[in-house]
């Protein structure tokens, strides 16, 4: 970690735990609920946000002294939308299969409040290198929660991980299902994600009481 100063390291590590965008800043909840029924979708979303937030933060940071205050939100929106469309078009031309998997995420990335939130709160006031690290840190923090939620929802809801039947076959009654275990259909609908995120928030705050708000 000689490359990064202590402050820089914190930019990456803080959002992973004590300043997590989902559980502490409560940003990006919508996509955390919408797409975490499967682990694979969670991972794809995490990587996409990593890219868009990393590059977007740098672009906004480079432009920070030029952006007129009155229209800064629109400028931020245009930067995100442009980045997402460029990625989408390039993938469509060179990795068509992958682009089909991603197409559903495009709209969700543009409207992801983490991205606008970090542009507004960090990139507008810091240099490009710091903004880049902040983007990476926050999207990693976001991705970690997404993957945890996706893991539990797919495992308990469908009995699979990345599509592999890890608990046996529910129709042919093999593995765990032979002893009468059933998949919990509730886990694959969005309210279950809210409950899983809630449990993570509860767990995190009970471990670190400093995070609990006063009232």
């Amino acid at each position: 970690m000689a490359l990064l100063s202590k402050k820089d390291t914190n930019l990456i590590l803080d959002p992973l735990a004590d300043n997590n965008p989902i559980t502490i800043q409560v940003l990006g909840i919508c996509s955390a609920l919408a797409i975490t029924a499967e682990l694979k979708a969670s991972v794809v979303m995490a990587i996409s946000v990593l890219f868009v937030l990393g590059v977007g933060n740098v672009v906004i940071s480079l432009m920070r002294n030029m952006i007129p205050n009155k229209i800064r939100i629109i400028v931020q929106l245009i930067v995100v939308a442009t980045l997402v469309i460029i990625v989408d078009q390039v993938l469509k031309a060179f990795a068509y299969e992958l682009s089909k998997t991603l197409s559903v995420f495009v709209g969700l990335i543009i409207t992801n409040c983490i991205i606008m939130g970090r542009f507004e709160a960090f990139a507008l006031g810091n240099g490009p290198w710091k903004a880049f690290l902040d983007g990476i840190g926050n999207s990693l923090g976001y991705g970690v929660i997404l993957i945890i939620v996706g893991f539990f929802r797919e495992l308990l809801g469908s009995g699979t991980l990345f599509g592999f039947k890890v608990l046996g076959d529910p129709v042919a009654k093999t593995g765990l299902y032979a002893s009468g275990y059933e998949n919990n259909g509730f886990m694959i609908i969005p309210p279950a994600a809210l409950i899983v995120v809630g449990i993570i928030i509860w767990f995190q705050r009970s471990k670190n009481r400093a995070l609990i708000e006063e009232n």
């Binding site: 975490t36 029924a37 499967e38 694979k40 197409s103 559903v104 694959i188």
Partner: peptide, 10 residues
Amino acid sequence: HKQETPGLGA
């Protein structure tokens, strides 16, 4: 499909 929910309609 164009954009059904991953893990459900997709």
